[in-house]
Amino acid sequence: MSSSPHARSSAPPVASSTAPGAGRSTPHHVTGPDLPAGASRGIDPRGPRVAAGVTAALAVVGLLLGTGPGALVVLAVVAGSFVLGVVRGVAGTWQGWLFRRFVRPRLAPPDELEDPRPPRFAQIVGLVISGLGLGLGLLGVGPAIPAGAALVLVASFLNAAFGLCLGCELYLVGVRLRAARALA
């Protein structure tokens, strides 16, 4: 069973997980060899959620500042943090540092570690949203600033409060769009 290189079959009735090749071939949820260099073996799953909470608070400040230069600066800080998050992972952002420095010492060790790639995907989505708002705002499209801040607020609030995983919801949409384009 599970002779296909793609099947990560788990303990089906006959072939147990000791069967050759079973469950070993696509270790993308475990720490696979395809992890980017420098990535840790896994991150505390509470880190990205706390970081998202900090981002949400920043987005609230941005929204309260309306369309002025203050709001633009806040959105630039948000976008800059997402650049850090895309390049270095969530743990490499200043929000991630805040979590490690002030929150994690007060928490029990995590039950499980999380693959750093899903939160990183969410950082890419955040960068696109905040980058668009910032770019349009710099070009003089005032309403783009609060619109960008509002979208960042919704996404980061859902992440922080509900644990919504943007990668889970958007990854396939992206893959399907790309496939549709390739066919066209």
Binding site: M1, S2, S3, S4, H6, A7, S9, P12, P13, V14, A15, H28, H29, P45, E114, D115, R117, P118, P119, R120, F121, C165, G167, C168, Y171, L172
Partner: peptide, 20 residues
């Protein structure tokens, strides 16, 4: 599936790498 079916049921899970 690339795997045998369970005689009563099979959970066919579709996953992605960016999904905790």
């Amino acid at each position: 599936l690339g795997a045998a079916l369970g005689t009563r049921a099979t959970f066919l899970q579709l996953s992605s790498e960016v999904c905790t």
